[in-house]
């Protein structure tokens, strides 16, 4: 099926989440999450801060363990995997951090080479350099290879963070607040980059955000989260047809204020 100019295969589910629960002490963060992400689809998870959006994708990548429920990624039950199998799965899933999480003692080139070298020790220096050049070109920062993270702007750091995940050619991308803390123009550039990544690298994605412009630009489907549950799912227009309660607050804040 073709949506927004690209193909989504609704017969192939790359992420399947069922009845997911997670608490931290007395704080019940996720309270029965169900979600399917299809191949080639960008799913935006919208919600207020502290509603458990980041916790959800950290469970998907295996950084956190769920209390109950199942998370199936590319046919593997994430919380059942042994360390070696989890690492193998992580090669297929890219994770872009809200803070970018670049290694600040390394240059941009070294940041990109680091996961590549460690996961493919047979690569020659030339092959690594070529792969880095391709990724830097894809994210639109070909001249930053020798710069340190401290010399980059917030938007550039986000792009390099995305580039570092792309270097392993993942099938799935998880973006944690890709536009948080950035000016509107940089946000637009990042939205374009997220769409370009999908086109060029043929990825499926979950994008965590509370930025409706980002949701509208990059999302094939939007899932609105409140108090640990999805309260509404659908295309952007379907979700924001009725502007009441939480949905209204979101809409008003993003488009009127």
């Amino acid at each position: 099926m073709k949506e927004n100019g690209h193909y989504i295969d609704k017969n192939e589910t790359v992420i399947k989440i069922r009845d997911l629960y997670k608490s931290f002490g007395d704080k019940h963060v996720l309270q029965g999450i169900d979600l399917d992400v299809f191949k080639g689809e960008n799913v935006v998870v919208l919600g207020r801060s502290g509603t458990g959006k980041s916790v959800l994708i950290k469970i998907i990548i295996g950084l956190l363990k769920p209390d109950a429920g199942t998370v199936n990624v590319l046919g593997e039950e994430v919380d059942q995997l042994r360390d070696a199998d989890l690492r193998a799965l992580r090669l297929k899933v890219g994770f872009s951090f809200q803070s970018s999480a670049l290694y600040d003692s390394m240059t941009v080139g070294e940041n990109l080479a680091f996961p590549l070298k460690r996961n493919n020790r047979s690569l020659t220096r030339d092959q690594i350099r070529k792969t880095i050049d391709v990724v830097l070109d894809a994210i639109g920062l070909p001249d930053t290879i020798n710069q340190y993270p401290s010399e980059l702007s917030g938007g550039q750091k986000k792009r390099i963070g995305i580039g570092r995940t792309l270097i392993l050619r993942p099938e799935i991308m998880l973006y944690d607040e890709p536009t948080a803390g950035l000016d509107p123009i940089t946000c637009m550039e990042l939205n374009k980059l997220i769409n370009a990544v999908k086109e060029r690298f043929n990825t499926s994605s979950i994008i965590i955000t509370h930025d409706l412009t980002c949701a509208k630009e990059v999302g094939d489907r939007v899932a609105v989260m409140d108090e640990g549950r999805f309260v509404r799912q659908g295309t952007f227009d379907e979700v924001f047809t009725e502007k009441e309660g939480l949905i209204k607050s979101f809409y008003d804040y993003n488009f009127i204020q």
Binding site: I61, L63, D83, R87, A88, R90, L91, V93, G94, F95, F97, S99, A101, L102, Y103, D104, F114, P115, R118, N119, R164, T165, L168
Partner: peptide, 21 residues
């Protein structure tokens, strides 16, 4: 510093064993 800025998590999700490294 690496822990609080999620650099250790970044190694984990890049399929690198941060404990060994």
């Amino acid at each position: 510093s690496m822990k609080v800025t999620e650099q250790i998590d970044a190694m984990e999700v890049s399929a690198i064993n941060p404990f060994r490294y």
